[in-house]
Design a protein around this nucleic acid. Sequence first.
DNA 1: CGAGATTGTCGAAGCGCTTCGACGACACCC
DNA 2: GGGTGTCGTCGAAGCGCTTCGACAATCTCG
Lengths: 338, 338
Amino acid sequence: MPTINDVARAAGVSPSTVSYVLSGRRPISAETRARVQAAIAELGFHPHAGARALASSKTNVLALVAPLRLDVNVPVIMQFATAVVTAARSFNHDVLLLTKDEGTAGLERVAHSTMVDALILMDIERDDVRLPAIRRLKQPSVLIGMPADHAGIACVDLDFEAAAGLALRHLAGHGHRRIGLIGPSPAVYRRQTTYADRFLAGFLTASAELELRTVTHPCEPGADGVRAALADLDTELPGMTALVVHNEETLRPLLDLLRAAGRRVPEDISIVAVCPRDVAMSMPVNLTSIDIPAHDVGTLAVETAMRLLDGRRVEFTRLLEPGLVERSSCREIPPSHR
Amino acid sequence: MPTINDVARAAGVSPSTVSYVLSGRRPISAETRARVQAAIAELGFHPHAGARALASSKTNVLALVAPLRLDVNVPVIMQFATAVVTAARSFNHDVLLLTKDEGTAGLERVAHSTMVDALILMDIERDDVRLPAIRRLKQPSVLIGMPADHAGIACVDLDFEAAAGLALRHLAGHGHRRIGLIGPSPAVYRRQTTYADRFLAGFLTASAELELRTVTHPCEPGADGVRAALADLDTELPGMTALVVHNEETLRPLLDLLRAAGRRVPEDISIVAVCPRDVAMSMPVNLTSIDIPAHDVGTLAVETAMRLLDGRRVEFTRLLEPGLVERSSCREIPPSHR
DNA sequence: CGAGATTGTCGAAGCGCTTCGACGACACCC
DNA sequence: GGGTGTCGTCGAAGCGCTTCGACAATCTCG
């Protein structure tokens, strides 16, 4: 492996000049630059990451802390990860993948040993135990999610409260008055994962504002969980004409179940799903949905980290506005029937 | 951030002694060691990763190159990734996540700049364009998959040829003679992703050996693709009594379709799936399946990388023996009907 | 036209660690 | 009792890079 000294010698300049060609931090004459670049290309020189990190205290690496257990929404996680890695590369950074399992210790390990310049964390809980540690790190963090106490920490996410409002307003606008919510699994609520809480809060607020009759229900994974949830909703909210489903995994069994019970979508029951676009479109019924813009959120998280790194101002809370796309799972209830 | 010098001063020893306490490469008296460790704990010392990498030419980081596009089997990829990260941590290594999109350039970038000690690559194609580059790197690589020319490169995977044989033998043992294969999407075959090829090869060999009547068919994703594939199989192989499905994504629509057509599983048609255990068990019919042991493969890949790194011998080709678990999707055809 | 600014380059220091050789202190053995 | 080892520790060199200050050369403008 050639070093910067080899390049310098080959180009007939000093090592520092090579460094300045690489970093652009000082003006270098066009011809010197050309000679240096030629030497770099010819020798196939790549600066040693460790040496660079040591000398400059920058690693050009981001940590991504992902929940790699399988009880969560795998495809969405994957979309976040893809977006983060891609965006990071566009800023000339790489991504170190950590599991949430390592908890606080993992964060501290990579931060204290200066392996990364910044951290991006997913699957944030309401009172996330990692928060104090995050605040103590010298590296900035960006959260995908919004804990209760997020003062001074950059947070990025879909505005789930607004999303719930949007879903209800859409349904109310179509004349629905009795609406059920199928939420994430109880485990997710138990962890107080922030998107679940925020969606629920938005749902309840909008429900009150719009003077709707609503019932909310978490939902265990699997067909049995869906069956139970649906049965409960039917009992507690007779005459229910619409469902908001904030639980990607239940969509498929739910549709199966409804069909088996002879309840047509949207003729007998309308559905608004909150899930990635592609999921909504790959169901037996083309679902009206509010997209979870994993790609945008991931990209924004990286951009925010970059701004933080070069000391620019950032808005500490960035909640992306939800968008609802009409497809074929909501019907208009005629005014006479409302 | 305290440095090794701070620790040395606090413990009243030289920096090299601290280093030897940390690495264990030279004998240190118990009492000195205790003093040093106390100082480390008190100061909260973590060695600087870059400095370490520079001085020792070891990064304690593995690259994981994953296909982060979404056309492939997301959950399986995720399982590999989880296994790799977890296993890496157990060897005190971290994982740098690269996308396959970056291709050869990405590998060379992280390898030449000494960001990683070894590489683990997924989604290997038959004549993978990255192979020459991989051979040239000074860091060792471990492939999850098996390219045509794998001489001198460590490869780890499920033995897909054997898996196909196992599936056919199971069905033949139950009296099935006419068996269809629903394979991955044409795109996967086009890329000549090695697991698809190898499974197909094993399927054809076993089919001949067992003197079965078989037809094989790739399958476009989505319900339409499945419908087309099934129709073709029915046409080309009238009287087909069993299906081998080597395409996780089609399982659900396939079962829907069969049910809709009034074909019961396993009464009218038997199925052996090749997919992760949890997928097989989360279907409407509990599927007899051959597990894709992503966890084992990922772990083995990391172990192999570690052996390579400390110069121990490795078997360059490790194909994990497939296991078939009987559930409820295969019926025995009575001898009278064979 | 000269003081001052700008441009382009160099040399040297130093980032924080590992590792090699050296060395004193002992123990061991014929 | 002097050679031979082993043990435990230290000092110094050096890994490959960035960055700071210095300086010569060139430009700028009142």
